[in-house]
């Protein structure tokens, strides 16, 4: 091993490229969706259950915190789908290059943000 290797531990000068950010967010949103599967199943159970079950669900939605959680879960879903579609396009050879990859990442991020904001407007 060489003695004098270039070392950069100054975190303020290390920046993730946009492609890495889009990629790690895809993974994080996937984990979030996995963790919230039981809550979504519970929601389905309540909405398909008796009138009392539905009333419980409605009371939950009345609170700002639970509405925020719902927005968060759906945002993760939106992001995961958008970034996933980018992945599928890349499987077909679209947006794989250095420049086109960055462009694709920007487009995916932009589309996801717009959809998430629109969802927020619809929810509130």
């Amino acid at each position: 091993m060489k003695e004098q290797r270039p070392v950069n531990l100054d975190l303020t000068t290390i920046k993730f490229p946009i492609t890495a950010i889009v990629s790690i967010l895809h993974r994080i949103s996937g984990v979030i969706l996995f963790l919230f599967i039981p809550l979504m199943l519970w929601g389905l159970q309540q909405v398909l259950g008796s009138g009392d079950d539905f009333a419980v669900l409605q009371r939950c939605f009345a609170g700002p915190v639970s509405r925020f959680i719902l927005w968060g879960i759906l945002s993760a879903l939106i992001y995961h789908i958008v970034a996933g579609i980018r992945h599928l396009l890349m499987d077909f050879g679209l947006g794989e290059g250095k420049v086109s990859g960055r462009l694709g990442a920007r487009i995916a991020l932009g589309v996801a943000i717009v959809l998430i904001v629109l969802l927020g407007i619809a929810l509130w």
Partner: peptide
């Protein structure tokens, strides 16, 4: 477990 729970939810409608 999620799969079985999901099937249970669907068939109790």
């Amino acid at each position: 477990g999620y799969l079985v729970w999901g099937i249970d939810i669907l068939w109790s409608v």
